Simulated assay, not measured.
Amino acid sequence: MTLHATFLGTSGAVPTVNRNPSSLFVRREGDAFLFDAGEGTQRQMLKYGTGFGVSDVFVTHVHGDHVLGLPGLVQTMDFNDREERLTIHTSKGTADRIEQLVFAVGGDVGFDVRVSEVSPGEVVLDREEYEVRAFPVAHRTSAVGYVLDEHDRKGRFDREKAEELGVPVGPKFGRLHEGEPVELEDGTVVEPEQVVGEPRPGRKFVYTGDTRPTKATVEAAEGADVLVHDSTFANDAGERAEHTGHSTAGEAGSIARQAGVTRLVLTHVSSRYAGDAGVLKDHATREFTGRVLVAADGMELDVPYPDR
């Protein structure tokens, strides 16, 4: 099953020629989501071919570079005759501001827009195969990060072993894989554990939004396949990062190391690195020896299963 991310906006608060304000598109099989929606997000979606079929927008916090794209996005969806509901999730105490922003111009639209407040630790979206949870972050305002966490998958079905035990090819294979014992013609009962391996882990994708480095992020990102972390500044701007509620690349690398993630993606890149953001990767790799990427607008990332 597909788990694919497209980085629509990777700049800090000030956009640059090559970086739009924050927005991340994630597709999981047939479901599509946005994490934050900075100014011009709908144009980025057109440019990078994601389409507008998102069901949920997960807002980390109500600062302009993370939400000013919402009115335009909603109006574009309306112009495209959208009928399906759009749910915008936002941090506690900010729903009124999001509603006022979305409908500041244009009034009502022809589809249902629901704004839902979320609290740290809450399961925001609960689906059969995965869930999206909010976790606390440390910024200058009410803010959360989000974890897309897949449930364990079924173990591998050993067809050869099943045939050796006399299970006929057909529906009984499926019943065994679903965890149901089956009875053969001679009365023998074959149990699922005889032919199905241990459950296999799903994937874990974590997006922090703007934040200082926190223990809560380490806990939320433990064992993640991908951690997308605020990396606004290089290490020599540590005081500035602390003052503005952001992280340095080195601090993001330290979080990734402590959490034991597989890949770290650095984003929310300050305009001071418009010419070359390579220093951010250099500083992150001093702390984290796994794979480090500096996000760029239009960058696409496939997330494979851990056991591939």
Rank of each mutant, 00 (worst) to 15 (best):
V113D: 00
V144S: 02
Q194Y: 01
D56W: 00
F103I: 05
V105A: 12
L176M: 06
A221V: 09
R286I: 07
S231P: 00
T208F: 03
V195M: 08
D225I: 07
D230C: 07
R19M: 14
F25R: 10
G290C: 11
S55A: 13
S55E: 14
N80F: 09
A134K: 05
F233V: 13
A259G: 09
A221L: 03
D112F: 05
F33E: 05
L125Q: 06
V144P: 01
V124P: 04
V195G: 03
D236S: 11
M1C: 04
T10P: 00
T90P: 02
G275D: 07
E300K: 12
D225W: 00
A274E: 12
E239S: 10
R43P: 03
L176F: 01
Y48W: 15
V137M: 04
R156D: 14
E251Y: 04
A221E: 06
F157R: 08
G107K: 07
A234M: 06
A237E: 14
E219S: 12
G209C: 04
K161T: 14
A241M: 08
L148D: 06
V59A: 06
G187K: 14
V26G: 06
Q44H: 07
G72A: 07
H61G: 09
G202I: 10
P181F: 03
L227K: 02
R175W: 06
L264G: 01
L184T: 10
Q194G: 03
G250Y: 04
T208P: 03
V54A: 05
T90G: 08
R27P: 01
Y273M: 12
R175Y: 04
F79A: 14
V228C: 08
S247V: 11
G51V: 08
